[in-house]
Design a binder for these strands. Structure first.
Length: 507
RNA sequence: GCCGCAUUCGUCUAGAGGCCCAGGACACCGCCCUCUCAAGGCGGAGAUCACCGGUUCGAAUCCGGUAUGCGGUACCA
């Protein structure tokens, strides 16, 4: 890091043509980390020049998602109706049109660019012809030297010209901060590059350079899919007489089949992960470790710790397959680290969803959710799993499967006896004795007196109370249910087993 | 097709000439703990470091080639 040069300025430049993508989030993260580590500035710029596909809803989604992840930007667009923040605004490209116009005019005046009157039909035909001849597609340059008369003729036809930037022959080289020295022959770039559409709107390769220059971006940290485009950008920086930034191309995040991660094959929307109950700590930790490592064996790290350790030298070169299982594990690690009040906050919306969907009969109050924390905290890979874990606490009637009620080593008569004696034992307890420790002793004693394995008795009770064989610890569950409901549910289970479908029905 | 980049256990990765017949983590299997499920602890299996050749006393690490994969090649970003 050369500290004597101008300060580090990095950016994330998403396109509001879809919801926040996991890949965009990761690129934003790396930029943010680099800025934090170097004391630099993190800029957010919306690349909304694809008017057809850009929407304000997507823009909002992206901003909200980045904020949710904790990736605050130092400069960027403001909320609707609010001013942008930062001295290099505006930070939405569609609000910077005059600038692009000025620059393209200048390029035109310097003859670094020219008007091209080819229609897309003509261009398509040309491309097809080249492909048929097994030649690389490339613009012929037939508008490169038009006379004023020729231009006038095209104009008279009503053709709206695009603007093309002249790609001069030569080798373009740069030193990528993660890949090292890269050289590309400009002749492989496909000919002169369209920088402004026929309708006057500027194109990505042009805007990105104009803006990175205007916003004094020092390091362009982006996905590897832009590596091959970098020479175009460098040529543009030179034509504009602007200093080239340093480049760092991050490895791609991959589908399981090792192609670039896509909506078709993977879950790519950050919203969907949020909706499942991934928490920001888990997602950030996981994303940071996709293509980067500390160089040591540390792996459970918070954003600040990651920022301290971050460096581009430890960025991996090869693509990384997105591994949901590892994400879930990391997420669970972070859920376990949350304090009870924070976990209650994070859990509340997910409990609400269960209530709204009618899977539980009412929305529990905060103290009730907090009481759940010890039962669920180490059993949640994602917050959305809360429903299935504790729904039996919030419904009047549970579904009981008589077959499930009978523990593996037991038969129906034994189960009935077990449940009846458990009912009696619990019935004898004073309501104010209803605590985990006070429940366990008598029930264990009961099992021992009858010569049962405690586990079998407990399992019968568990299923009678919850309908399930896998639950939080039994005695905590009993307490959470409360004495009355415990007795009622034991009674219901006994009836079910003693009824026609139960006793005598099986075994 | 052309151009570029990449390649260490199934997956994420450590490794920057001898410490590596390759370490950690997820997933998997087993054991322990244990009222179930988790969590946790311990252990196991899993990579001829893509391949071939070279440099070197010595290569996963350096060089060359090959293969495979991926990315780019738009008046998308």
């Amino acid at each position: 890091m050369t500290a004597e040069h101008s300060a580090v300025r990095v950016r994330i430049a998403p396109s509001p043509t879809g919801p926040l993508h996991i890949g965009t989030a990761r690129t934003a993260l790396f930029n943010h980390l680099f800025a934090r580590h170097t004391g630099g500035t993190f800029v957010l710029r919306m690349e909304d020049t694809d008017v057809e596909r850009s929407t304000v809803a997507f823009e909002q989604d992206i901003l909200a998602g980045l904020r949710w992840l904790g990736l605050a930007w130092d400069e960027g667009p403001g909320l609707p109706g609010e001013p942008d923040s930062g001295p290099f605004g505006p930070y939405r490209q569609m609000e910077r049109l005059v600038r692009y116009r000025q620059i393209s005019d200048r390029l035109l005046a310097d003859d670094r660019a020219y008007y091209c009157y080819c229609t897309s039909a003509e261009l398509d035909a040309e491309r097809k012809r080249l492909e048929a001849a097994r030649l690389p597609p490339r613009y012929s340059g037939r508008c490169a030297q038009l006379s004023a008369a020729q231009r006038a003729a095209f104009e008279a036809e009503g053709r709206r010209p695009a603007i093309r930037f002249r790609i001069e022959p030569g080798i373009v080289a740069f030193d990528d901060l993660v890949r090292g020295h890269v050289e590309i022959d400009a002749s492989a770039l496909g000919g002169d590059l369209v920088i402004v559409r026929g309708d006057g709107t500027p194109l990505y390769h042009f805007c990105v350079v104009v803006d990175d220059a205007a916003m004094k971006i020092s390091h362009v940290i982006r996905g590897e899919d832009h590596l091959s485009n970098t020479p175009k950008h460098i040529l543009l920086f030179r034509a504009l007489d602007e200093a080239e930034p340093l480049f760092a191309h991050l490895p791609l995040i991959l589908n399981p089949d090792r192609t670039k991660m896509s909506k078709r094959k993977s879950q790519t929307a950050v919203d969907d992960y949020i909706g499942e109950g991934f928490i920001r700590e888990g997602l950030v930790n996981y994303l940071a470790l996709l293509g980067w490592s500390t160089g040591s064996e540390e792996e459970i790290l918070g954003l600040d710790e990651i920022a301290q350790r971050f460096s581009l030298e430890h960025v991996q070169k090869g693509g990384a397959v997105f591994d949901r299982e590892r994400l879930e594990w990391l997420n669970g690690q972070w859920i376990r680290r949350l304090s009870a009040p924070v976990l209650v906050d994070r859990l509340r919306p997910f409990v609400q969803i269960e209530a709204t969907a009618g899977r539980i009969e009412r929305m529990p109050a905060d103290p009730e959710i907090e009481a759940l924390v010890p039962l669920v905290q180490e059993r949640l890979p994602v917050l959305g799993a809360i429903g299935h874990l504790v729904d039996f606490l919030f419904v009047d009637r549970i579904e009981l499967d008589a077959a499930l009620l009978v523990p593996k080593r037991w038969d129906i008569p034994t189960t009935l006896e077990g449940l009846r004696s458990a009912h009696a034992a619990i019935d004898q307890l004073h309501p104010d004795e209803f605590a985990p420790e006070q429940l366990e002793a008598p029930l264990r004693a009961l099992a021992e007196a009858r010569g049962w394995k405690a586990g079998d008795l407990f399992m019968a009770i568990r299923v009678a109370l919850t309908g399930r064989t896998a639950t939080p610890p039994l005695f905590q569950t009993l307490v959470a249910l409360g004495r009355e409901r415990v007795l009622v549910r034991l009674g219901t289970a006994i009836e079910l087993l003693a009824g026609p479908a139960g006793e005598g029905g099986r075994q």
